[in-house]
Simulated scan of single mutants.
Amino acid sequence: MIKIYSPASIGNLNVGFDVLGTALAPINGKLLGDCITIQSNQIFKLIIKGNFSFQLPKKIEQNIVWKCWHYFCKIIKKKILVLIILEKNMPIGSGLGSSACSIVSTLVAINKFCNKPLNQNKLIHLMGKIEGEISGEPHYDNVAPCYYGGLQLIIQENNLISQSIPFFKHWLWIIAWPGIKIPTSEARLILPNEYSKHTCIEHSRLLAGFIHALYTNQDHLALKLMKDIIAEPYRIKLIPKFITIKKKMLQLGAINFGISGSGPTIFMICDNKKIAIKITLWLENNYLKNKNGFVHICKIDTQGTRKIGL
């Protein structure tokens, strides 16, 4: 029997649409992600539990875990008879890499169970393919950090998918999911098909400058360049009172603010724990829409997907 945990993640990080992503670890030590347990069985069986199991489709063939198992069996040309237990702890359509959590944990678990017939390249390409079926096209800004951990720069050149890049260890990342969902496919469709030459040049300048700031340890420069001119101007209409909340977060002491992935989760960066706690309390009282919503103070998870105790 094997149990695998995959962490939640933030995609885009404002300045890196589809090319930057980071894994998350709450500072209180709790796990923020999905878990997969796998063991031998006489038939294939899938059991689903967890806080957000109610959001998943009832038909087994529509479940992302079943799809992972199906594709894996197809690739190795063998039907693997196992019992898989999915602990669905991440809300769907939250902007925190929920689908990546399930995909990555499932494929890593099955691959380990079968003595690793797929190498890392084949495995992560399969993860991206299945993720693409949900969002409309393959993208790795959640899959790569979820799998590898850390802050990942998506390169996607032949077999090279991503590389780990430096990050500022003193930054605290506050994430707030209000308890409602925005499908990734819907959030991608709202974006324009074409951008002006000026926007493309400006985006290149911001992204290149941000990466430079990380490698030269210039946190103030990184914060100045950490702007979203690709998605945020169009996606703010999907998040009620976005501008008002952004102003409030900055007034309370956040040093950066943005939409996590496709939203509606928002993220704030702080370099002071007392300010982070103050912001957390405000969000709990003003941003959450129902009892399912949550706020966490996090650091970057450097471990990524891993085996944990049963």
Score class of each variant (00 low, 15 high):
S6T: 00
I2N: 11
I47D: 15
S185M: 12
A222N: 04
K59I: 11
I266F: 03
I266E: 01
I110L: 14
F52V: 08
W177A: 02
T37R: 10
F72T: 08
I175Y: 02
N115P: 07
H212I: 12
L83N: 15
K59Y: 12
I38E: 02
T22N: 07
P7M: 04
E61W: 04
S162P: 07
N290W: 09
S196H: 11
I84P: 05
F17C: 08
P138T: 02
G179R: 00
S185W: 03
Y215M: 10
N12Q: 06
I76Y: 07
E284I: 07
Q62V: 08
I190W: 06
T199E: 11
L283S: 02
C270P: 00
W282D: 06
Q55Y: 06
I182V: 15
I245N: 13
L310N: 14
L221E: 09
E131T: 00
K299E: 10
G11A: 14
L96M: 11
I201A: 08
A100V: 05
R306W: 08
M1L: 12
G209L: 03
Y234N: 01
L56M: 09
T244N: 11
N217E: 14
W69H: 13
C200V: 14
S53V: 09
A208V: 04
E133A: 07
I161T: 01
Y140F: 15
I27D: 10
F210Y: 12
P138V: 03
N158D: 13
I279H: 05
N272G: 02
N89H: 08
R235S: 07
Q55L: 13
C270M: 03
G179C: 04
A222F: 04
T305L: 05
A109Q: 07
K67S: 08
E202N: 12
F167H: 10
G136I: 02
I165F: 02
N285A: 12
G136W: 02
N12T: 08
N12V: 09
N121T: 13
I165N: 01
N272Y: 00
T37L: 14
E186A: 10
W66C: 05
K227Q: 13
H198E: 15
A208W: 00
H70I: 05
Q163Y: 14
I64Q: 01
N41M: 06
F210S: 12
